[in-house]
């Protein structure tokens, strides 16, 4: 590889590299979940892992989300930090007891003596006419729970760095990635590195409005910003990367500077992260030039039909128009 051309990697392969390097680094780490041997389930995020580390460490499990998630927690408590993957995060609902009642509370319940270094890895599968039980983005639910950290990378660099941080973290971390981002390419260093949990990234500096994005919405916003510039709007773009802990400082600093804010979530609007961020901005007492704007999914289950999906999901056009409207500018 030449020095002047940094290595690029797909988002899914960045996760794959993180898993290879971490499992290589620490032979106590176990990976389990449905479909770890099957790209149909997990894309190419688990390529070569079984071959390299064997079926005792990389375990393709029966469809038993509750027990398999609990098993990952028990292994982590016993000294084997585990990653449990849910290739469609909708199935994680079967595992709410181990995730929420057990793992999230364990450190507290033990008076700070026993922490659970487990990673709950859930993949969002939005779109593709998969309907209400194969497309949900449940980060808001998990973020509500004390004791859980929640991360959602949007770039290949962050996907690798946050997976590494999640595995190294002594606490339970919910790592949520997005199937639609899997083929996106970006610069990914070959060595082990970590992206700090709880630190947002400012993707672009600007003075007119703060755009707060996360996961897939960060990807969409990146495409929208050049058009905003053409329309005379100089936006500051924040990619949250971590939902919990939320990087309130970075958000407030930016909003104070721009005086305007739009929050673009990939989950539902009510009681979700856009509501939480709005509340924190409101509580801070920052004077805004225009009311807080939220763009999120309607409070509706995910539909199947492509026409309904088009109405349901966010896209570049919806984001662009919403921002132009804040400035009372045309968006044609």
């Amino acid at each position: 590889m030449s020095l002047d051309k940094p290595r690029e990697l797909e988002y899914s392969l960045a996760i794959n590299e993180a898993l290879h390097q971490m499992m290589n680094e620490n032979r106590s780490i176990l990976l389990m979940g449905q479909g770890v041997k099957s790209p149909w389930y997990v894309g190419n995020t688990c390529n070569g892992l079984v071959e390299k580390f064997g079926e005792k460490r990389v375990i393709d499990t029966p469809v038993s989300e509750n027990a398999m998630t609990g098993m990952a927690i028990g292994a982590s408590i016993a000294g084997y930090p585990s990653i449990v993957v849910h290739p469609r995060m909708d199935f994680m609902l079967y595992a709410f007891d181990p995730i929420i009642n057990q793992a999230a509370n364990w450190f507290y319940m033990s008076g700070g003596k026993v922490s659970v270094p487990v990673v709950f890895w859930g993949i969002i599968n939005r779109g593709g006419e998969q309907a209400a039980q194969h497309s949900q983005a449940l980060h808001g639910l998990f973020a509500h729970i004390p004791g859980l950290k929640v991360v959602m990378p949007s770039t290949p660099y962050d996907a690798k760095g946050l997976m590494i941080s999640a595995v190294l973290d002594p606490n339970p971390v919910v790592f949520i990635d997005e199937r639609l981002l899997y083929s996106n390419k970006g610069v990914v260093p070959t060595e082990l590195y970590s992206v700090p949990i709880g630190k947002a990234a400012v993707r672009k500096k600007g003075k007119d409005i703060t755009i707060i994005s996360v996961s897939y919405s960060a990807f969409l916003v990146e495409k929208v910003t050049p058009k905003l510039i053409e329309n005379g709007i100089d936006a500051e773009v924040i990619d949250l990367r971590s939902i919990k802990p939320l990087d309130t400082n970075t958000i407030l600093k930016s909003v104070k500077k721009t005086g305007r804010v739009i929050i673009i979530d990939v989950g539902w609007k009510s009681f979700g992260i856009s509501a939480e961020i709005s509340a924190r901005i409101a509580e801070s007492g920052i004077n805004l030039k225009s009311p807080i704007k939220r763009l999120a999914l309607p409070d509706t289950p995910a539909p199947a039909s492509r026409t309904l999906e088009a109405a349901y999901y966010l896209n570049e056009k919806k984001i662009y128009e919403s921002i132009c409207k804040i400035f009372k500018k045309g968006s044609s």
Binding site: L30, I59, N66, A67, M68, T69, G70, M71, A72, I73, G74, A75, S76, I77, A78, G79, Y80, S82, D97, P98, N101, Q102, W106, M109, S110, K113, V114
Partner: peptide
């Protein structure tokens, strides 16, 4: 009643909730 130092890895009142956790220790 949780005390890792003596191998009491945990106890919890969610009925059957710790069975799968035990599975993890056995897996290790």
């Amino acid at each position: 009643i949780i005390d890792k130092s003596v191998g009491m890895l945990g106890a919890a009142p969610i009925v059957a909730g710790t069975i799968s956790l035990t599975l993890g220790a056995a897996l290790g």
